[in-house]
Design a protein around this nucleic acid. Structure first.
Lengths: 150, 150
DNA sequence: CGGCAAGTGTAGCTTTGGCTACAAGATATA
DNA sequence: TATATCTTGTAGCCAAAGCTACACTTGCCG
């Protein structure tokens, strides 16, 4: 899934439907960063109120095995979002914290918007988890405006 | 990605946070069916107004290579959503058509809701492509209600 | 200090969804 | 008809995200 370098939205040239293609492409690549966002947000949470973020806790909260969590944490490190020394817990880099902040804010707006249009609490929280990763800046701004938060 | 059989949202037992885990899990598995939904919807579209759905057209519209499209069409066949004989185009099974209908309806509601809360056309169409796959039935119903379509 | 449970980490396998490259069928055109 | 072009299909490679199974630290407790 997601092949970074050679993925620039169709060769163009033909007057077909480059619009739709890039739309789908965007939806697909967005999904790629989604997992990292989830991890970063969760790590920030754990760090904030528990003081430490252990792989096992992360795994449990995300509903995956610790092996999977550890592997993904490795990716987080590769991408410069987190740091972790063996057996010593996970911490966020500055970039990671910045991302966590943005993600958290966005999550809140999405949930609030869902509630505002009448989605019940339970579903709002649940669906927001998937939806938020596909909300562009423009859309997010519109949501905030709608909620009266200029 | 996505491992169907043994993925039932954590072993439970521990009084930790099964809620959040299942939320994440759901968001993740939802994403799995998303691609199939996109294909089915697109095939329905092509069939409806062009008369035929060729792998190359599908690929172009989705912004992937024809090889990728063909492989996914194979999966569609395996899942009983489509049929296709070599060099003869792709068609939907009854299940496929039913799915296409549902997906199309949902897409319309999501776009309309985004527009209703002030998201500009362009972004609404674009973001809906990703969002729609994470909108549960409950949330969809709430959207419809909000839009005045009981 | 010894031992054992819990937590970490590694290895290896699977599926999905991309890609490129090449081969082969279908179509159109000279 | 013969050739050229477009479309299909196949094969093989890659990375991500999951899993299980096994190995190794840590840390606590007797």
């Amino acid at each position: 899934m997601a092949n970074s370098p050679p993925r620039a939205a169709a060769p163009a040239a033909l007057p077909a439907e480059p619009t739709q293609a890039s739309r789908f492409g965007k939806a697909r690549t967005a999904q790629s960063g989604a997992l990292l966002e989830d991890y970063v947000e969760l790590i920030a949470d754990l760090l904030a109120d528990g003081g430490e973020a252990r792989p096992t806790d992360i795994a449990r909260r995300l509903g995956v095995t610790h092996a999977t969590a550890i592997k993904t944490i490795g990716r987080l490190k590769r991408e410069g979002l987190a740091v972790a020394k063996p057996y010593r817990g996970v911490f966020l880099t500055e970039a990671g914290e910045k991302l966590a902040l943005r993600v958290r804010a966005r999550h809140r707006v999405v949930v609030d918007l869902l509630l505002a249009v009448g989605v019940p609490m339970e579903s709002a929280e649940s669906d927001a988890e998937g939806i938020e990763h596909h909300v562009s800046d423009v859309t997010l701004a519109a949501f905030a405006r709608f909620l009266g938060r200029t």
